[in-house]
């Protein structure tokens, strides 16, 4: 299998799955809109009910999701190993680690300590993770830790000064 065909097969599988997700989402939206109150007590015209547009959008999403799944159906035949292999690459690990760090930063650190401290911890951890752990070509740990500390200190304080002091923007 050539690399292009392989990529197309992976993309088709992804399109097929997302197509089905949109079919389900469309159906759920349609159901929720259909069962939305019609406000008969207020004597409103039936064509102005709140659920009208969401109902149409849900139906549209259902149809388009179905079309997408049908279009990508050829790709679901054959092996799935290459599809699952995509999730085991360093690239995905880097994206997921970045997302995890952002979630810890926003959901845990922010609010439990001053914003400048939270952002400095996040910046330090992010640089160490990306340049020291999840990287194919790592520099020396001294250099990585030094740069991470420098980035955290400089960028953390600069963001705080710029927003909170200079432009008087309230920080979380």
């Amino acid at each position: 299998m050539t690399s292009d065909t392989g990529q197309q097969s992976v993309r088709d599988k992804a399109d097929f799955i997302t197509g089905l997700v949109f079919v389900v989402l469309g159906a759920v939206v349609f159901y929720l809109s259909y069962t939305m109150p019609r406000l008969e007590a207020r004597n409103i015209h039936p064509t102005t009910i709140p659920g009208l547009v969401p109902m149409a959008l849900g139906a549209g999403l259902f149809v388009l999701g179905g079309l997408l799944a049908v279009k990508a159906r050829k790709g679901i035949a054959g092996e799935w190993e290459s599809f699952f292999a995509v999730f085991r690459t360093l690239e995905v690990a880097r994206s997921m680690a970045a997302l995890g760090l952002v979630l810890v930063f926003t959901l845990v650190l922010v609010g439990s300590m001053p914003f400048w401290a939270a952002s400095m911890i996040f910046l330090f951890a992010f640089v160490v993770m990306m340049e020291g752990v999840l990287t194919p070509t790592r520099a020396s740990w001294t250099s990585i830790l030094l740069w991470a500390a420098l980035t955290a200190a400089l960028a953390g304080s600069a963001i705080y000064y710029l927003f909170a002091e200079l432009f008087l923007v309230r920080l979380p």
Binding site: V102, L123, F126, M130, E131, T151, A155, F163, V169
Partner: peptide
Amino acid sequence: DRLMAVIAVLCVVGSF
């Protein structure tokens, strides 16, 4: 990598 870390902090500030 360092730039993206800074942008992530700016995303939080910008949306808050």
